[in-house]
Amino acid sequence: MPLLQIQKMTHYFGGLRAVYDYNLAMETGQVCGLIGPNGAGKTTIFNLITGIYRATEGKIFLEGSELNGLAPHEIAARGLGRTFQNLLLWRHMTVLEHVKMARYSKISYGLFGAFFGTAQRHREEAAIEAKALGLLGMMGIKHCADQVVVNLPYGVQRRVEMARALAMDPKILFLDEPTAGMNPEELAQMMEIIRQVRDELGLAIFLIEHRMKVVMELCEHIQTLVFGEVIAEGTPNEIQNNPKVIEAYLGKEAVE
């Protein structure tokens, strides 16, 4: 049984067919890539899987249990962590608070602990904090822990989002253009981090990317999406040599 399985997923925004007949099977430890031109429907697929939109048709299974119809926070708590294409951070909260927040569904001290500051609460909060600091260390941004997130450089903000998503102990990590807008140096660091996450945490990663270099180097399996439909999928080599992809995607990239 695959870790994540999607069958015949289709989604309409009113009259616009954003995703059509989308299928996926993903295993633990795998890194999958989703590429495609602007407006192809890549982010929409992420939003459908994570429950922000309800798919018009189709079924989504995580470890065999159906995700359709669950609220976004329930789907997240099942083990789907994600980052956002256009950085959704909490502007008045510190970096550490961001990462701690992702443990929300695992907190067991409850309202009583929150109101009365019980010993259990202090223990749990300390454990959450230690875990969060560990992740910030892994991302190399521990020194920013107490800073408010809006003051930080773009590359650091991306890493905060990643640390936050990892703090929920996800089974699959969804990264929506993790290197968008980064300079070559930041890009290299981010790729290193993604590799490290894959090797050390042993989770599946699903990656949307525009830069071919990143996808080709990181992913084992790649899907190419054009106008909501997968026109080609396979290993990086197969994709690179597929004439449909070259026409729809690489051709466009060459023009740019």
């Binding site: 976004p72 997240a76 956002f84 998503a165």
Partner: peptide, 12 residues
């Protein structure tokens, strides 16, 4: 600060 992000981070 951002409800969608809160949802995605398991916050009910």
């Amino acid at each position: 600060d951002n409800e969608m992000a809160a949802d995605a981070m398991t916050v009910n």
